[in-house]
């Protein structure tokens, strides 16, 4: 499957996930195993009224979504996966009233596991808002 087709399929699949729709998350693209999702700025996602700063919890949800798609993107066949654990280091507060981009790569698959790394950023990946590591369990493992 070429990347343009895959991008279009991914984008349509995300629209059907209620929580992603609620967060305003859309698919940006995939390149060399790195998946990018975008979470549009919305006053509904702000931590404190009028601050314009997106809540950490929403950033966590963006990264969990991005990581999950990075895992699925690298599998030969579609299968349900589940997050085992995920850690976010919040490096600095996001700039107010701006969108966030989640970027993640699955860097290791075993028969039962997938290991993911990534970051959240706004303007430049050299200036990330948060760093992420996570692990997922694949079906067949217990």
């Amino acid at each position: 499957m070429n990347e343009a087709v895959r991008t279009s399929l991914m984008g349509r699949a995300l629209d059907h996930v209620p929580h992603m729709r609620a967060l305003g998350i859309s698919f940006r693209g995939i390149e060399d195993g790195w998946v990018e999702l975008e979470m549009a700025y919305s006053p509904d996602l702000v931590a404190y009224p009028d601050s314009g700063v997106i809540a950490n919890g929403a950033i966590f949800a963006l990264m969990d979504s991005t990581a999950g798609i990075a895992v699925v993107a690298g599998l030969r066949q579609s299968m349900p996966i589940a997050t085992i654990d995920m850690r976010l280091d919040y490096l600095h507060p996001p700039a107010p009233f701006e969108r966030l981009i989640g970027r993640a790569q699955c860097y290791k698959y075993t028969r039962s596991m997938a290991f993911v790394r990534g970051l959240a950023y706004q303007d430049s990946i050299d200036h990330p808002v948060a760093n992420m590591v996570g692990s997922f369990v694949l079906p067949g493992a217990s």
Binding site: V17, P18, H19, M20, A61, S65
Partner: peptide, 16 residues
Amino acid sequence: SLIGSPGRLHGGAIAG
């Protein structure tokens, strides 16, 4: 709106 996959809450909502 909390659903992440069929029949399941999104992990991000639980983390939040």
